[in-house]
């Protein structure tokens, strides 16, 4: 069977409008394992693709709160237990003095979580991808728009999927090797 050899299909579109319409068609056909690649953010494309809400806010919240709690604990331990020192006649546990570092570390923990979470959720770093073999795909950073449907998708059928992509207004459909 030819399906097993193929990684999936690559379809090229000429403009944001075309890929938006095509994404709606692929979404409505019930595909799950597919993606759209564009040279610039196409607003609303995530809705056209039926992408679920990102999990990133929850990761940021969890890391921000735990970072916040850890830093307050650390400051309390460092100033009160590990190296107790009176500064400016203030008590060992001086919340106002802790706040700047406490606050900044909460921000830092949230930002690092947002950055790393973004990478992990997007499967980065990813040095190679089957689409890189395609000559046409090089223009994804220039002026062309692409939809990739993976053969691993339960809906995937080489001929039917090819027909769907052709119908959706693709100017080029290519099969990708794994």
């Amino acid at each position: 069977m030819s399906e097993t050899k193929s990684w999936g299909l690559l379809a090229q579109y000429e403009n944001p409008h075309a890929i938006y319409k095509a994404a709606e068609k692929v979404r409505d056909a019930g595909y799950q394992q597919w993606d759209a690649c564009t040279p610039f953010p196409v607003h609303g494309l995530d809705k056209a693709m039926g992408a679920p809400p990102s999990k990133l806010p929850w990761i940021v919240l969890a890391c921000g709160l735990s970072g916040s709690a850890l830093m307050l604990l650390f400051e309390t331990w460092a100033m009160g237990e590990a190296y107790p020192m009176i500064v400016g006649g203030k008590p060992l546990f001086s919340l106002p003095a802790f706040v700047p570092v406490w606050y900044e570390f909460t921000v830092l923990a949230s930002c690092v979580a947002a950055f790393l979470g973004n990478w992990i959720l997007n499967g980065l770093p990813r040095p190679h991808h089957p689409a890189f073999a395609s000559k046409a795909f090089e223009r994804v950073t220039d002026d062309k728009f692409f939809i990739l449907i993976e053969a691993a998708d339960p809906q995937f059928d080489l001929e039917k999927t090819k027909a769907l992509l052709n119908e959706s207004g693709a100017t080029l459909v290519e099969e990708l090797e794994p």
Binding site: G88, P96, A97, V99, P100
Partner: peptide, 12 residues
């Protein structure tokens, strides 16, 4: 509000 407070609290 906190920036105003903490400088005054620290300098005393």
């Amino acid at each position: 509000a906190f920036s105003q407070f903490v400088l005054i609290w620290y300098a005393n």
